[in-house]
Design a protein around this nucleic acid. Structure first.
Lengths: 112, 112
DNA sequence: ACACTAAGTTACATAAAGTAAGTATATATG
DNA sequence: CATATATACTTACTTTATGTAACTTAGTGT
């Protein structure tokens, strides 16, 4: 009847990564450092409010770094740390799985 | 200024997997077919209501299969399909990342 | 008839996320 | 000097998602 405990590190990772938007933000940053507005526009349903929360959480976890360039207007860039970049293989796994197993619905053509 | 579109299969996979509890339910089923109450008790903060929703979604996506054994009382088992089992490498990626990068907080000892 | 058990479902309460307007800071314009 | 512009947020408020606990259903046993 007993169930094995999951490894607390794994549990923590799942907690982080399965939080809404977190993984997609990391994925977006895999393509290079970018600014708030760019991340926001890459994820159409993500609100600025939640993006701001997630960026703070990710920074606190050491997954991203926030760089301030005191230009006018100020420029702030977010980029992955080594810890963040180390998540790349995870996205490869998802990519492989999706290309093998996800069927897209046929688009309807010539019907109302 | 343009941003590359993400592959719709990948996007769909992310949508599925980043929904709260979904990945953890799949992970739990990697250890073998199991019944509702067992899955529920393996994920302490997941409510029966949401588990029931997720199981339906996962079945509709072809990731799990629901088997009914008309015993008394009825026994219902959930198990991963091939599509579901194919997610195993994803959890390996997370496991590898977490063991390399996640630091657990020190437990406090001898302090109030 | 009543109780037991598994697998849910329902009504209601709380928490998380979305929306749109507002703030802060620095500079430029008239 | 007042107003305007731009970026990066924050705030007040609304909507959606999730949690909680009680209830339902079906088959059997007492």
């Amino acid at each position: 009847m007993d169930q094995p405990q999951l490894c607390p590190r794994f549990e923590k990772a799942m907690e982080l990564l399965s939080k809404r938007w977190t993984a997609l933000i990391v994925f977006q940053l895999l393509s290079g450092p970018q600014r708030f507005a760019r991340i926001e526009s890459s994820l159409p349903n993500l609100s600025g409010k939640v993006l701001s929360e997630r960026l703070k959480e990710l920074e606190a976890e050491g997954i991203i770094q926030r760089d301030v360039y005191p230009e006018t207007p100020v420029r702030i860039e977010y980029k992955l740390t080594d810890k963040g970049n180390a998540l790349a293989p995870l996205f490869d796994s998802i990519s492989n799985w999706s290309s093998e197993w996800i069927q897209l619905p046929d688009k309807e053509v010539h019907s109302e």
